[in-house]
Simulated assay, not measured.
Amino acid sequence: MRFSYKELKRLASLPEKVTIEEVAKAINSIGFEVEATFPFGDVEGIKFGKVLEVSKNPHGDKLNVCKIEFDDKTRIIQSTATNVVPGKVIIAFVPGSRAGGITFGEKKMKEIVSEGMLSSLTELGVSKDLVRDSYQEGIMFYDEVKDLSLDPVDYLDLQDTIIDVDILSNRSDAQSYYVMARELAAYFKTDFQ
């Protein structure tokens, strides 16, 4: 079972100073086994943008040319996504942004320079099995975002660590945040929320 470090801390009312290492040690101490901990989304420099125009690349059958307004400038980004339409707010990797070990830049694609890449949920670090079928290949929209200068990493709370815990067959009840947070609250002597 995979748990969000931030969510477990919130539910178990753990002090801010409690580290991921201390939570993992506590989970091991209360009879479970932490298999691994890893960052939820290893991305930085991504931006919200509002799609202004979408047209077909005349030199490429599958490429759409998207004119997108960001907080710092308007960029052209090409994509094979078919659900992008004008007026929608999206997230994009712009030149200088990073995902894992990849830093994004400009790239000429079918005679037109693309200044980044549109981002789906899976490219932000969300496991494919947690994404609705309708968003598996498509771009997610964030129309509630009115301020394009907001940092998507903060807005979507992507600065988190996932704790992968091996749950014993006789403790299937621990496959929930409720039980795991309750156990952690008892371990750290805090008030369970």
Score class of each variant (00 low, 15 high):
193 Q>C: 12
142 Y>S: 06
32 F>T: 00
6 K>A: 12
106 E>P: 09
178 Y>C: 00
99 A>K: 13
178 Y>Q: 07
172 S>L: 14
3 F>W: 04
3 F>I: 14
103 T>Q: 03
53 E>G: 01
174 A>C: 13
80 T>E: 12
171 R>F: 15
136 Q>E: 11
96 G>A: 05
34 V>C: 06
9 K>E: 07
14 L>P: 07
163 I>L: 08
176 S>D: 04
190 T>P: 12
130 L>Q: 12
176 S>G: 14
124 L>I: 13
169 S>T: 09
188 F>N: 03
8 L>C: 07
149 S>C: 02
50 K>D: 03
135 Y>S: 10
135 Y>E: 10
170 N>G: 00
147 D>P: 04
152 P>I: 12
8 L>P: 08
98 R>E: 04
5 Y>G: 03
73 K>I: 09
92 A>N: 07
124 L>S: 07
166 D>G: 00
6 K>S: 11
73 K>Y: 11
6 K>E: 08
91 I>N: 02
43 V>D: 09
165 V>I: 09
87 G>P: 13
46 I>W: 04
107 K>I: 12
28 N>P: 08
13 S>Y: 01
108 K>E: 15
5 Y>P: 01
76 I>T: 15
129 D>Y: 05
62 K>A: 03
143 D>S: 08
191 D>W: 07
75 R>C: 05
115 E>V: 00
46 I>R: 00
185 A>Y: 09
90 I>D: 04
83 N>I: 12
185 A>E: 00
43 V>I: 15
2 R>L: 14
125 G>K: 09
150 L>F: 02
9 K>Q: 12
102 I>M: 15
183 E>K: 15
103 T>N: 00
169 S>A: 14
187 Y>G: 08
46 I>P: 01
120 S>N: 13
98 R>N: 06
64 N>G: 01
10 R>F: 08
78 Q>M: 12
114 S>L: 07
67 K>M: 13
144 E>D: 14
5 Y>A: 08
119 S>R: 02
73 K>F: 14
142 Y>Q: 06
138 G>V: 11
40 F>T: 07
151 D>S: 01
67 K>C: 06
138 G>D: 09
124 L>M: 15
12 A>P: 05
35 E>A: 09
163 I>Y: 06
33 E>M: 06
137 E>L: 11
150 L>G: 00
145 V>A: 05
74 T>W: 13
165 V>Y: 01
111 E>G: 01
25 K>N: 10
167 I>E: 01
48 F>I: 08
118 L>T: 12
52 L>Y: 00
112 I>F: 06
54 V>W: 00
